Computed example of a mutant assay.
Amino acid sequence: MTLRSKLLVLIATLAVLGGVATASLLHASDRAAEKDRPQAGGPAVTAGPVSLAPGAARRIVFRNMAWGPHRDELVTVPAGAPAGPRTSSGVTCLRFHAAAGTGICLRAERGAVQDTYRAVLLDAGLKERAHYPLPGIPTRARVSPSGRLVAWTVFVGGDSYAGSDFSTRTAVLDTRSGALTESLEEFRVVKDGTEHHAADTNFWGVTFSRDDVHFYATMATGGQTYLVRGDLARRTVTTLHRNVECPSLSPDETRIVYKKRVAGAPADAPWRPYALDLATGRETALAETRSVDDQAVWLDDRTVAYSLPGDYGADLYTVPADGSGRPARLLTAGLAPAFLG
């Protein structure tokens, strides 16, 4: 190759690389502008103090989904005025939950090559107490009623519960002792009365009892999902009921609300919310007929909240937990709520 040819190749290569860099910068600029651009008619959001401390007036803390400079930040509104102006903490989370002054924030750490994720333990003032690397994409988070125990679930293969080609990892942290169970797959499994061993076993969607020993979760194996009851002291899980996903235990600990796959529903939207009476095993379909891909949160012993797709990505809805009434939108542009106070 002549010197002239080499120079032409070099110039062409630099032009291509320059074009790629320019395109990347423009794309990043467009994303930043989109984040900073408020959407017409969206909720008002201003910066201010946000607390997870118990004893304050009843309020909701959640991930703000409205476009603008405070998108993805934890915000708060009074529980009695959920559509009112929002106060933003500046703390960003993909998934969040809190109870008794303890918060868990599953967060993306943006990298030059790829994103990584971490679980950040928060105190009542949203200050970081500790953080833990996550092996996949955050999907569920829960704090026990006392604030002592924290659980999180990530996807480590696949990115949707709707199909069968996914794998999860669920961890439980004791915030008092610092003991971390990195995966519930370490626990002994009793399925239908028999000890169970299978490589395809997955867990997700933990919900805690008040005693800080027992919990409920989803276990999947052999193409089936099960409600399991776990014992942290004995490190065991035991199956209780089939076709249960993302359980949420009622404050009085008598019922589980969960998403159930129903026959005839679309493959990508297969779930309907149900309630299970733990004493009798009786299931009750809730009045929400749309597919709910979320782990519901109880407002009280009568009502649950959950997310559905909306104009901003997600809106929050409520429905009675006894099958009566009808769904009602609680607030727009919100995800991962905790009801505090």
Rank of each mutant, 00 (worst) to 15 (best):
R261P: 00
G341V: 15
A328M: 02
F203Y: 14
T201W: 04
D322Y: 00
T332N: 07
A112L: 06
G111W: 03
A44I: 15
R140N: 14
D159I: 12
G325Q: 01
G334R: 11
A265E: 04
K191R: 05
A263D: 05
L25N: 10
A12R: 04
T87M: 12
G205C: 08
R169G: 09
A279I: 08
Y317P: 09
E109A: 07
T153F: 07
R4I: 02
A151D: 15
P320I: 00
S291P: 08
K127P: 04
E288Q: 13
E245G: 04
R229Y: 12
G111H: 05
P43E: 03
G111E: 11
D252I: 04
S146G: 07
K6S: 05
P270S: 03
P133K: 13
G111A: 11
E73S: 07
G41P: 06
F155C: 12
A57H: 12
V304Y: 03
A328N: 02
S88D: 01
V143K: 02
E288W: 02
S146K: 06
V244E: 07
L3P: 08
A130V: 12
R290T: 05
D115C: 06
Y258Q: 01
A336Q: 05
A12D: 04
P138S: 10
H27E: 07
E109G: 09
Y117R: 06
W298Q: 05
L286R: 00
A233W: 04
Y312I: 02
P49A: 09
V20F: 09
T284V: 00
R290V: 02
A21M: 01
V154R: 14
P135M: 02
A267I: 07
S164F: 02
L232K: 09
L134Q: 14
L7G: 10
I137Y: 14
Y258R: 00
H196T: 00
T236G: 02
H97Y: 15
R59N: 11
T254N: 12
Y258D: 00
T225H: 13
D231A: 14
P85Q: 13
D322T: 00
R58N: 06
G125E: 10
R255T: 05
S324I: 01
F203S: 09
R261Q: 06
R176L: 08
A40L: 08
V213P: 00
G334E: 12
E245L: 08
L3Y: 10
T170W: 03
T225G: 07
K127M: 09
A305K: 15
S167G: 15
L286Q: 06
Y117V: 12
A141H: 05
Q295N: 10
D252C: 04
G222N: 08
L278T: 03
P138F: 06
A99V: 11
D36A: 15
E253Q: 01
D174Q: 05
L335G: 13
P78S: 05
D212P: 10
R255P: 07
A79W: 14
V154L: 13
V75N: 09
D252M: 04
T254C: 08
L180T: 03
G136N: 11
T207V: 06
L74A: 10
V237G: 15
D211T: 02
P78R: 08
A112M: 03
A338R: 10
G205S: 10
A81R: 01
D192G: 01
D72C: 13
P38K: 13
R31V: 14
W204A: 04
L227C: 07
D211M: 02
V16L: 09
V297I: 11
P85K: 12
S89H: 15
S89I: 15
R142P: 00
Q295C: 03
G136C: 10
